[in-house]
Amino acid sequence: MLEKINIQKTCIIEGHQIVVDDKLVWSGAEVLPFSDFAKEAFLQLKIDYPKFYKMDALSKLAFLAAEYILQGEDTDELALVLANKSASLDTDIKHQKSIQDADHFYPRPATFVYTLANICAGEIGIRHGLQTENAFFVAEEFPKETIYSYVDYLLKSGKAKRVLCGWVEYFQEEYRALLYIF
């Protein structure tokens, strides 16, 4: 079974700060809404990826955490196992508002496509060309045993050389991302 010592790298995004391996790599003004913080953190990366601006908040959070932790890392046969508490509820609510009024019924396709939690894993996969296994779990708290045993299985079965896993939670400006590379 995997233990903490098997963790090769970590990235935490919370409180408008990005910390990689216990080192603060980016800090935004606390008064900013998440969207502005995310944009600043994205621009800091100096990458050309216009799709970022079209993502919902959960995908932006997952994308940024993956981007910061994977800097300089080999992504060959890297699997992805994520979890959170609110699934895509933040975006689900936005979508619901757009279809609430029968007289002004204009569902936004760009919002609707993010009404699934595992879309954020897809965004990471597309960005990094991952063709390995990916999974997304929804649980009240980080399902450590489930995640670790799944990661253990992926590594021991040879389905992946390494696994990017962790927690990516976003709901109405409350957020936390904690990713690990095993």
Binding site: P50, Y106, P107, R108, P109, A110
Partner: peptide, 17 residues
């Protein structure tokens, strides 16, 4: 501009709305 299929759907909604 490099728009994609989701953008096309958004344009359809824009035309309607």
């Amino acid at each position: 501009l490099g728009l994609d299929s989701i953008d096309a759907l958004e344009l359809i909604v824009l035309m309607d709305k």
